[in-house]
Design a protein around this nucleic acid. Structure first.
Lengths: 215, 215
DNA sequence: ACCTGAACACCGTTCAAGT
DNA sequence: ACCTGAACACCGTTCAAGT
């Protein structure tokens, strides 16, 4: 069972979600396709368990964070840890937080985030929404960034900078009267850092939260 | 071409992303499978064009919004309009904002959101991040909510309230010492409103943005 | 308890051939 | 310019049969 999940995660890491097929997995395990059905009932369950497996590692990282006297700072550190994990495993964004009942580690992660809000002066209603908002920012930004870049970028034939640059170039050719905003930010877009973008989005939410808590 | 997209969107609306197959689409169009390849080069392009097709309608709604003297209020109205569209078409969340170069309407929508930030006292860098953050909140919350509920809920055999209630019940049975946050918010979760949850997340981001702009 | 080969019904995509 | 039938290589899943 353990090796089934390990190999499944390895396939996902190496070539993304489409690479995880029962046939590819069976080959790596040195067995037949049908064998896997003794461990999981369906592909959906396989993905759920594989996701929970890696979320367990993220949870361990989050539990190892030092912690401070400011719950907002602690929330920030946790969110960044989670985001980093998704950046390194783009397939994770799509499956994370599905089936919280089955995926025990996602629930524990949710609990850990929520515990920080218990230290803030908020209503239960506000706490519930605060954690949803933070998870939303992480997943939203991660999904936005996790889209498979074209094959040429994966090949290494074209660098990320070149790819962004080409994009930026088509934007520069748009009519400035019709697309004033695109022209305003095209130099920011060109060569931008994903982590920086995430940090800013997170900071807006945390600022709003801090104001709400009067802290 | 127009009817290909219309029928593709109809299939997606009726039964979600897995229902859109070339064979199902061909049958509805009364032709052969291979015919579709005269209009689109691949399934990816079909999905991109179908997405762009409905984003066009969302864009029209957004352009029809009255507008006010407060750019933050206008951003809120636009984000809510976009969110509503995704709630009614859960498949949209996954494909929205992919391939902005091909999908002209997504780019125009992005531009429209960004134009509001031009009315705020921000740097170009902050404007770029602000729009990314807002799109992130919309997509993140929508993806979180857009997950297919179990078959029994779709059937109507079990109501959404019953489904949430069952979930809540398993949470109530967790050890309160180990899951204090889950116990704190379980009554909020039980029977919660998705739109309400989205509004709160959006408000935190907009509050942060307003503070940043000193407005 | 654990694994297998072979089949089933389904995919996206291609291609030579038609009008 | 537009459409077709038939095939190809691939899927997830099942099942009777093996150890």
């Amino acid at each position: 069972m353990e090796s089934v999940l390990t190999e499944a995660v390895a396939l996902l890491d190496e070539a993304g979600a489409p690479a995880l097929t029962f046939r590819a997995l069976a080959q790596r395990l040195g067995g037949g396709v049908a064998s896997i059905y003794w461990y999981v009932a369906s592909k959906e369950e396989l993905l759920d368990r594989a996701t929970d497996h890696v979320v367990g590692a993220v949870l361990a990282d989050i539990e190892d964070l030092p912690g401070s006297d400011d719950p907002i700072d602690d929330l920030r550190a946790m969110a960044v840890t989670l985001f980093d994990a998704i950046v390194h495993r783009p397939w994770l964004g799509a499956y994370f937080m599905r089936n919280t009942d089955v995926q025990g580690n996602s629930l524990r992660l949710y609990e850990r985030l929520g515990q920080q809000t218990l230290r803030l002066d908020l209503t239960a209603h506000q706490r519930f929404h605060a954690v949803s908002a933070i998870v939303g920012v992480v997943v939203g930004t991660a999904v936005d960034m996790g889209q498979e870049p074209p094959e040429e970028v994966l090949d290494g034939a074209v660098s990320r900078e070149e790819y962004l640059g080409r994009f930026a170039q088509t934007w520069r050719e748009l009519d400035p009267a019709e697309f004033p905003f695109v022209h305003e930010i095209v130099d920011e877009f060109d060569g931008h850092d994903d982590v920086d973008q995430f940090r800013s989005a997170l900071e807006l939410t945390l600022t709003g939260l801090r104001l709400q808590a009067g802290a």
